[in-house]
Design a protein around this nucleic acid. Structure first.
Lengths: 329, 329
DNA sequence: ACAGGGAATTAAAGCGCTTTAAAAGCGAGG
DNA sequence: CCTCGCTTTTAAAGCGCTTTAATTCCCTGT
């Protein structure tokens, strides 16, 4: 046989109609046990696999969830893993579309739409809320990690301000009072963390000090140099994400500033980076698995249960204490 | 309008047949400039986007490349990025299918087949060669990174033994003679590197010392502890990959062994990890972009140019020297 | 004015599957 | 023996697009 077997080939071999075969293979009710057995056997022998394009086209429902991600982002990797298994459980397929140097969010989303996904799960989307709003008018969208104030966009996120607050609480309980914050730049996520820092510091009666940065390691190195050179250096530094924290720690290391001896450092995301024994960074964990599960549930509840009200699920992050923080000297 | 517009809607609006619209939208020759203009305008106004499932089904050719990857692997991320842009250039779409905890290679490949991809690009596949051979009999397959001795499987890889040789050459030129190798465990890639180490050591007239490991950071930590405790410790350590090297360096750090003062360490992959200023690891670079481009070319040349002879492209890796290596004390 | 020929257009036949409405088969009850 | 009601099977109509063969147009040359 040269071509892949078609439904018709299986049907011919068994001596029934293609309709029966289709029903059997999808486990639909109707066919008798006998027919079932024979069809299954024939399909097995021929190595039949349905043509996804054809069945997608014929089926009214697509049962596909589109996921927008950045394949370079390890946090997204964790999410995708969990999304896959949860989607599986709910009977959905997953279509991945990644950002690259020359594929921006708009383009990656278009790919997903072309696949006729029934709903989109956007991992930390950075597009303007207006774009997301318009998108959500066409198709159910759930944003993970990024808050979107639009009545149609579902959101699953971790309470960034609470996470930052917990980290600061930890530092404060260790006796720190001069705590700087290395910023994550523009972007919705960074803004939320900055806000959390400002609020917590105000509440504690300490003065805030925000050092500019950008969620990259280089940004961290720059911020670290600045901080290390300050005459009256803070005793602790909270960073907007882990990469930033790694950069900061590196700059400190090179400047002879001990971590956590001279300065304590906290990151955010609890990425695999933070867990590296080499780095051993105290960080805020966002529970990626739970976020992924909730996002899939949100999509599925719109599709299968006709939910129309916006859902916003906010998870409480959890601080993971490691070796980069210690009592104030 | 409730539904997504169809080809027919565009055609109706312009007052031509669906055939003309289809032709125009795909830039096929035939339609006049005038028709083109009007169709394009109408399609724009309606926000028309072709249904991928339908066009896939109707088209004989699919123009889709399937990529098997592990979304958690940063090296794969680099490759995917480049594959995307190269595929674009060649006029192909990319379908991603990732390994997860409960999606093994077989399952992920099946997804790709269901999408009716025309060729598969497998990133460091770990399936037995027999499986890959059978797969390649159905559909063009190119394996990146992993050597597969099968007449039907194309291979794009970096010469691991040469890479290891270059690293050892560097160490030897720094005066090292007792150079241990931390192994990557079973798996085709690890085997090639181990072989390269053994050969280079033999050639240099030194005795090989292979410490077991497994391409994870923990494995590196274990190996590092073992090495640090040795009475007559080697002065340099070559690791089967970067993660391993990071683990080894960590164990050394904790054991008070200076890097590169007491021991030089080299990794493999030149991953983003190695570039972290904090880690600053001398490592072997595999030129991911070139591998990706060649893999796409290999697939495309089978599909579009009717190539049938096996192609094996071996790239020469390049050593990137950083701060983890230095002269023997 | 008309045949001939190239350019533009379109009717219609699928692509491989799902699904629905109708047909067929089959016992049991009258 | 016929009818009714049930289960099982199937014919056939799409799903939205591509593609080929045929048709229609519109010139040009005679």
């Amino acid at each position: 046989m040269d071509q892949r077997p078609r439904l018709e080939d299986v049907a011919a071999r068994v001596g029934v109609s293609t309709a029966s075969v289709s029903l059997v293979l999808r486990g639909a009710p109707g066919p008798s046990a006998e027919t079932r057995r024979k069809v299954l056997a024939a399909a097995g022998e021929l190595g039949y696999r349905a043509d996804r394009a054809a069945s997608l086209l014929a089926r009214r429902r697509r049962h596909q969830l589109g996921v927008l991600l950045d394949v370079r982002n390890p946090f997204h990797a964790e999410l995708v893993e969990e999304i896959h298994t949860e989607a599986d459980r709910a009977g959905y397929e997953v279509v991945l579309s990644t950002l690259t140097r020359d594929r921006d969010e708009r383009r990656a989303v278009e790919t997903l739409l072309d696949f006729r996904c029934e709903a989109l799960i956007l991992l930390g989307p950075d597009s303007p809320a207006s774009f997301l709003g318009k998108l959500a008018a066409q198709i159910p969208c759930v944003s993970i990690g990024r808050m979107v104030r639009d009545a149609a966009v579902d959101v699953v996120r971790s309470a960034d301000d609470v996470g930052v607050g917990a980290a600061l609480g930890h530092l404060i309980s260790l006796g720190h009072a001069r705590i700087a914050f290395v910023d994550g730049g523009p972007g919705a996520v960074a803004a939320a963390r900055r806000r959390g820092y400002r609020r917590a510091m105000r509440r504690a009666g300490f003065t805030a000090q925000v050092v500019p940065g950008d969620h990259t390691e280089e940004g961290g190195v720059r911020a670290g140099r600045t901080l290390a050179a300050e005459p009256d250096r803070p005793t602790a530094v909270m960073c907007s994400n882990d990469r930033l924290a790694v950069g900061v720690m590196d700059a400190f290391l090179r400047a002879g500033v001990q971590v956590p001896g001279d300065v304590s450092v906290v990151g955010y995301d609890d990425s695999s980076l933070a867990r590296l024994a080499h780095i051993d960074l105290t960080s805020v964990n966002q529970d990626a698995p739970a976020q992924a599960r909730n996002a899939v549930q949100a999509a599925v509840s719109r599709l299968d249960e006709g939910r129309t009200l916006r859902s916003e699920i906010v998870l409480v992050p959890r601080l993971t204490v490691r070796g980069s923080t210690g009592p104030r000297e």
